[in-house]
Design a binder for these strands. Structure first.
Length: 548
RNA sequence: GCGCCCAUAGCUCAAUUGGAUAGAGCGUUUGACUACGAAUCAAAAGGUUAGAGGUUCAACUCCUCUUGGGCGCGCCA
């Protein structure tokens, strides 16, 4: 919150200055300087202005500093010129102390805004086909999508998490047939199992249930039964991974369900596109003119045999999302779907929305390694590692934290042997340990009677304490960064850094001491630490045990 | 063949979207528990950011090319 307030004031002051120099709509950045620089924030405005008007950046910086000191004396203690013309700002301690008070009083509400209601956001993720259990790759999408949604929610956006269920199409027929053959086999029929059908044992489990229930083959809807069991498993696996959806949206609802005129939403979406001139008939098929909006080639919506493609459903689905009032759509897709981005972007624009209304976050696939050997992943062959398997082995917290450690863009190598180690090799323990240590102090402090109610933060004047407070107040900046980049991974970095600073503080500054005023102030400080750790880990879906 | 993503310390990855001396964890070496938890801390070693050009006051970041890896390119989903 500090940075945001600071930036607003600087924009006012420097913007006015730039305007006097003949520069309209001047944009500059407010950043944290590198660690070796002793300052709170750095501004690059002078170098940018100097370039535009061909002046000496340090002279410009000097002029801006005068303006800052006279206009922002209440929050800025000191400002100086460094390097090529950076303006380094030093905050007044009171600004940090006020923010600290806010953290302690607002607790889990800290950093959340109430004013973002204008945007209604849907985060759609996982959306794995109900043809088998979730594997580890889905887990990455689940962790990123869920945490992103939590962050957006915390920022005050009206946010909905949705799972799109592809329960229509060819794969469903294959699934039903897979279950039927397994059923026959269990009944003693020696029918061969087709090689291109779903091989996993979970299909046998479904068949076994049907046999155990004494069901007659003539009255079994194998598709329905298989999807039911698989979905139940998926839901449990996700729940154990701290992921819960607000809504499960069935493709059947738009591709099969008909209105009173006998039309599905897919029918209507295609008609709409035709009426707008964005879809046309060629070679007996219906084509989407996606090249109009930058796609490589036009795509088929309806095959010449009259069946719709997956894309047709997807157009209708996205239309449906907008019709439900969402103004911003976030889709998490595995990188193997990247070829699909251009056409869905085209759809959004054809539906009359700006390109920015949809953000597709692509996450690179997880490659599994076990004993140095790559592990193949394919739902068809049955040689896959399930999310459940990994969560059972390494724990939900470690697994989520691990997935959120990396930017979605980078390929992630998941070493099963490494992940199994419940040791300090896993950074999640390092962060959770902060909370455990704080709580240990709280337990100890209960026996003391000399603790004053009003902590005097000005007693927190060591460099370790100031660094800690500074890091705590960066919580909101981290939230904004995650929103800006649509990635929660900055939060893991932030928390690891916070943990690092805390442990250093812990070594240097004893909390419980004979100095009761100082003890009170430090207790309040670590209370704030707990708030931030708990909030931060909570946004990542990781728990904060008081004892470990 | 065309397109998208990636290449950073021995390993796994960050780097506030163009900022200052590129940072963490693990691993390696050395040291610290008779006061709040040593799942910790202090210190050391480790880099031509794959390579070559270019743009810029400033490049890991942007542009071009090369090399190497992942993934796509269907009237499949």
């Amino acid at each position: 919150m500090i940075k945001q307030q600071l930036t607003e004031k600087l924009e006012e002051i420097i913007g006015k200055y730039a305007k006097e120099k003949g520069i309209e709509n001047f944009v500059f950045s407010v950043e944290e300087p590198p660690k070796n620089i002793a300052a709170d924030f750095a501004v690059n405005a002078a170098m940018l202005i100097a370039k535009k008007i061909k002046a000496n950046p340090r002279n410009i910086a000097a002029e801006i500093i005068d303006l800052i000191l006279s206009g922002m004396g209440d929050i800025i203690n000191k400002a100086d010129i460094a390097g090529a013309g950076f303006i380094n700002l030093h905050l007044k301690d009171e600004v940090l102390f006020d923010e600290l008070k806010k953290i302690v009083s607002e607790k889990d509400k800290y950093g959340s805004k109430a004013s973002n209601n204008k945007e209604k956001i849907m985060v759609e993720f996982v959306s794995a086909n109900p043809t088998g259990p979730l594997h580890i790759g889905h887990g990455r999408g689940a962790a990123i999508g869920d945490s992103l949604a939590r962050i957006l929610k915390h920022l005050g956006y009206n946010t909905t998490k949705e799972y799109y269920l592809n329960d229509v199409g060819n794969q469903m027929l294959v699934l039903a047939e897979s279950a039927r053959v397994r059923y026959l086999q269990l009944m003693g029929d020696e029918v061969p199992f087709p090689a291109d059908h779903y091989q996993g044992d979970y299909i046998k489990d479904i068949a076994k249930r049907l046999v155990d229930e004494g069901r007659n083959i003539d009255e079994i809807d194998f598709k329905k039964e298989a999807v039911k069991d698989i979905l139940a498993t998926i839901e449990i696996d996700l729940k154990d991974f701290a992921v819960e959806f607000d809504n499960w949206f069935s493709e059947g609802a738009i591709a099969l369900d008909q209105d009173k005129n006998g039309k599905t939403e897919v029918d209507k979406a295609c008609e709409y596109l035709v009426s707008k001139g964005d879809a046309y008939v060629k070679d007996d098929a219906l084509w989407l003119a996606s090249t109009k909006f930058g796609d490589d080639k036009d795509r088929v919506l309806k095959r010449s045999d009259g069946r719709y493609t997956y894309l047709a459903s997807d157009v209708a689905y996205h239309k449906n999302k907008f019709e439900r009032g969402f103004t911003k759509l976030v889709n998490l897709w595995g990188a193997d779907h990247h070829g699909y981005v251009a056409r869905i972007n085209a759809c959004v624009q054809m539906l009359g929305f700006p390109k920015e209304a949809l953000k597709v976050v692509l996450y690179q696939l997880v490659s599994l390694v076990r004993n140095g050997q790559p592990v193949a992943m394919s739902t068809r062959t049955g040689e896959f590692i399930t999310l459940k398997e990994v969560v059972d082995e390494v724990g939900k917290d470690a697994c989520r934290f691990f997935f959120l450690l990396r930017a979605p863009d980078s390929q992630l190598e998941f070493d099963l042997e490494l992940a199994k180690k419940q040791s300090s090799e896993n950074p999640v323990f390092y962060v959770q340990y902060v909370n455990a240590r704080c709580n240990s102090i709280f337990r100890e402090s209960k026996s003391r009677t000399d603790i004053t109610k009003n902590a005097d933060f000005s007693l927190l004047n060591t460099k370790e304490e100031r660094a800690l407070i500074k890091q705590l107040t960066a919580f909101c900046d981290t939230l904004s960064l995650c929103e800006k980049t649509m990635s929660p991974h900055h939060f893991t970095s932030y928390l690891i850094e916070l943990a690092d600073i805390y442990h250093k503080f812990y070594e240097k500054c004893r909390v419980l001491s004979d100095d009761s005023a100082l003890t009170s102030a430090r207790l309040k400080l670590i209370e704030a630490v707990c708030v931030i750790i708990k909030n931060g880990l909570g946004l990542l879906g990781v728990s904060t045990p008081e004892k470990m």
